[in-house]
């Protein structure tokens, strides 16, 4: 137990360090801006006085480490600063959108994870059968498709004939059922994107294990193939499968950006794309930090979980 606790603390410390470096990179990237943020914002025609005033207002007249410290302490207290385009506090803009994006990602994950595990196990069980071949070819194509292609195919098939809405309007006081209904198409798109990859990796992980001596032993004992896969192969394949799930949930983070734009879904991704075209660097920085933190945390969780399922990993350096 002591060992487990140590391991988790160690990984957490590493995660915090990674987050710190990520925040440095995201903040440091703005320093690459050719010229100055204030003069970029005000354009060519600005007088030196107005530029100086804006610089003072944005705190640009202070050295970079001071600004970084102020930004970081603000972020840790939930204060992301003000948007450069609308002058509204960024935290207010993010509040509802963050919830919407998390809802969509969880919805997609709730369908995709069980679905891909079942499909992967079945494909491994009926290896080289027609089902396996069709599932593999389908998965390979789904991986190669851009997200917006899948999204528009779904709109073409399901929304145009009126089964589901093609634009997602959600309001805070909707019932959960309605919410699930209107966000079904975006969630399905994300599901298709990540299921393919997860299924292939699950299949590969199980098939790798099937060559092990203990599986042969189980087969010689006369166990049914389903029982061999579920009781003997799957528990040992958990570590790679957990990693694959984490990688793909992290992939949802980037997939969500495109899908939100297609379905006009009021989430973080859409706000980010809008802010990029307005060159609202403060908002982009804040959202990039949130996405990157989610990514780091997911990888951290996967690392801890897969170590827990396989005690042999505990002693690795």
């Amino acid at each position: 137990m002591h060992l487990v606790l140590m391991m988790i603390l160690q990984r957490l410390a590493l995660g915090v360090l990674t987050l710190f470096v990520v925040s440095l990179v995201i903040f440091g990237a703005t320093e690459l801006l050719p010229g100055d943020l204030a003069s970029t914002l005000l354009g060519q025609s600005a007088t030196p006085e107005t530029v100086a005033a804006l610089r003072a207002q944005l705190g640009l007249d202070q050295p970079a480490p001071v600004r970084y410290w102020a930004w970081l302490t603000g972020v840790l207290q939930g204060d992301f600063g003000v948007s450069l385009a609308t002058r509204r506090p960024i935290a207010d803009m993010l509040a509802t959108r963050l919830g919407n994006t998390v809802f969509l990602a969880l919805y997609a994950a709730a369908i995709a994870v069980p679905l891909s595990l079942i499909l992967g196990v079945l494909a491994a069980l009926w290896r080289n059968s027609l089902f396996d071949r069709v599932a593999n070819a389908g998965a390979l194509s789904a991986i190669s498709f851009p997200e917006f292609f899948l999204a528009y195919i779904l709109i073409f098939l399901l929304a145009q004939s009126g089964y589901f809405p093609s634009m997602t309007r959600i309001s805070p006081n909707m019932s959960l059922g309605d919410k699930l209904y209107v966000t079904f198409l975006p969630a399905l798109t994300l599901t298709l994107v990540v299921t393919a990859h997860m299924m292939r990796m699950t299949r590969a992980a199980i098939i790798n294990l099937m060559a092990q001596p203990y599986i042969e032993m189980a087969r010689l004992k006369g166990l049914s193939p389903l029982r061999i896969v579920l009781r003997h192969a799957l528990p040992n394949a958990l570590a790679p499968i957990i990693n694959v799930i984490a990688i793909n949930l992290a992939y949802l983070i980037t997939g969500v950006v495109v899908v939100e734009v297609v379905f006009v879904y009021p989430g973080l991704g859409q706000l980010m794309v809008d802010s990029v075209s307005k060159r609202d660097i403060a908002v982009v920085q804040a959202i990039a930090l949130i996405f990157a933190s989610a990514y780091v945390l997911l990888n951290l969780t996967a690392d801890v979980l897969s170590t827990l399922t396989n005690p042999r990993l505990m002693r690795r350096k």
Partner: peptide
């Protein structure tokens, strides 16, 4: 390693904001 800790699409969007499209 530090650069790869940020998802690539998100990092590209950040850089595109800074340098323009």
């Amino acid at each position: 390693d530090a650069l790869m800790a940020i998802p690539s699409l998100i990092f590209s969007l950040l850089l595109l904001t800074i340098f323009g499209t």
